[in-house]
Amino acid sequence: MAAHARTSAMVGLGLVAAVTAGCSGSGSTASKAPPPSGSSSSSSPPGAQNNAAPTESNPPGDIPDNQVYVAFGGTGFTVKVPEGWARTQQGAATAFTDKLNTVRIQVAKEATAPTVGSVTNTVLPRLRSQVPKFASPKVSEVTRHAGRVVLVTYQGDSAKDPVTGKVVRDAFERYAFYRSGREVDLTLSGPVNADNVDPWRIISDSFAWR
């Protein structure tokens, strides 16, 4: 009986201590259960993690806002391209590439200026046969600093990366500039989820005849 009394007294004292500790320092009369064994507590106020600013990061393929551009000169024209991008030459086409983005410039002799109709009838079939999973083509006339140009927008799969084997879904803008029997096709491409509206506008607006 004495042992049972001592045990009951100890349990009662333990409950009093727990209630006292839970109420000290707070205005609430309700006690708060201690965290389960192995869990960690935080001194941050409630909701602090939800209000924290998210980590800033660009989607893959975003051209940085502070990208520097340099002039590239061809026969009879100039256009700005991103500084530091790798340059390759394939016949009459010059390409500048960095990570997942490409600026491609191709020069050709043409007897007549391109129109929405001629591009729809001749260029689109060629792109359909050349670009893997070609989709969502749209042909229109737009204005750039050099004047009125024919623009083709479309989507397609990139070539497989030789190292990772990955294929990226790309968005394309192809501008057809024309003057005096010379056509310059400026094609800009990058991942469909990248935010490259401003950089692509800088490049396409920089094209000038000379």
Rank of each mutant, 00 (worst) to 15 (best):
L186P: 01
A21K: 07
A2N: 13
G14F: 08
P162G: 03
V81D: 09
S41D: 10
Q67F: 02
P82D: 05
D195Q: 05
F134K: 05
A113H: 04
V81W: 07
P46L: 00
V152A: 11
T55F: 04
S40Q: 12
G38T: 13
F96I: 03
V79C: 01
S140H: 01
W200P: 02
S28F: 14
E183Q: 11
D185Q: 15
V142N: 05
T94W: 08
R126Q: 11
A146Q: 02
G47P: 11
G25E: 15
R148M: 00
R87Y: 06
N193C: 02
L124H: 01
L186C: 08
A3H: 13
K160I: 09
L100Q: 13
D170A: 06
G165V: 08
S31N: 09
A9I: 12
T153D: 08
A95W: 07
A3R: 12
N196F: 02
F96T: 04
Y175D: 03
P36M: 13
F77T: 07
R104D: 00
I105M: 10
V184D: 07
Q90E: 14
L186N: 04
A30N: 14
M10T: 14
R144Q: 12
V167T: 10
R201Y: 11
E183L: 07
G27T: 11
S37E: 13
S204F: 06
S26E: 09
L151M: 12
A18I: 13
A171M: 06
V131E: 11
T115A: 03
P114A: 09
T7C: 11
V19C: 08
Q89P: 00
A111L: 10
K160T: 14
V119G: 02
K109H: 09
E141Y: 02
V163G: 02
R182I: 14
Y69Q: 04
L124G: 01
E83R: 08
V139F: 11
S24I: 12
G117V: 11
V168F: 12
E173P: 01
Y69P: 00
L100M: 14
S28M: 13
A86G: 10
R87P: 03
I202G: 00
R128V: 12
S37P: 07
A86C: 06
N66E: 09
L151G: 02
T164E: 04
V192S: 07
T187K: 03
